Computed example of a mutant assay.
Amino acid sequence: MTYHTINWNIIEDEFDEYVWDKATAQFWLDTRVPVSHDLGDWRQLSEKEKAVINKVVGGLALLDTLQSEEGVNVMRVDARTRKEIGVINDFLMMESIHAKSYGTILISLNDQQTIDDTYQWMNNDPRMQYKVKRINEIYQNGNNLQKKVASVFLEGILYYSNFFTPLWYRGQNQLANLSEIIKLVIRDESVHGTYLGYKFQKAFQELPSAQQQTFRKWMDNLLADLLDNEFKFTDQVYAPLGETFVADVKQFVKYNANKAMNNMGFDAIFDHAAIEDINPIVMNGISTETANHDFFSQVGAGYLMGEAETMTDQDYNF
Rank of each mutant, 00 (worst) to 15 (best):
A176L: 15
R80E: 07
D117S: 15
P34D: 12
T312R: 11
M1C: 10
K100C: 03
S151C: 06
W8Y: 08
E206Y: 02
P34R: 10
N263R: 14
D78I: 05
T234L: 01
E189D: 14
D111G: 14
N9M: 04
N144K: 14
A274E: 15
V149F: 11
R127F: 05
V152F: 07
V299I: 10
G306V: 10
Y195M: 04
N262G: 06
A51S: 09
N279P: 02
D116M: 13
I105D: 01
R32A: 15
Y102S: 04
E155W: 06
A308P: 07
D248Y: 04
L106E: 06
K55H: 02
K55L: 03
E47G: 10
G265Y: 09
K83Q: 12
N229H: 08
D228T: 12
L60H: 02
N7Y: 01
I53F: 12
W121D: 11
S190F: 05
E309W: 14
I97H: 06
M283S: 12
Y198Q: 09
I269H: 04
K202G: 00
F245R: 02
R134K: 15
H4W: 00
L29T: 14
K131Y: 05
E47P: 00
L241A: 12
D13P: 06
L304H: 09
A268W: 08
K55M: 06
Y169C: 09
S101H: 07
F295T: 08
S161R: 04
D13E: 13
N73I: 04
E69R: 08
N263T: 07
N317K: 12
E289R: 13
V149K: 02
V253Y: 04
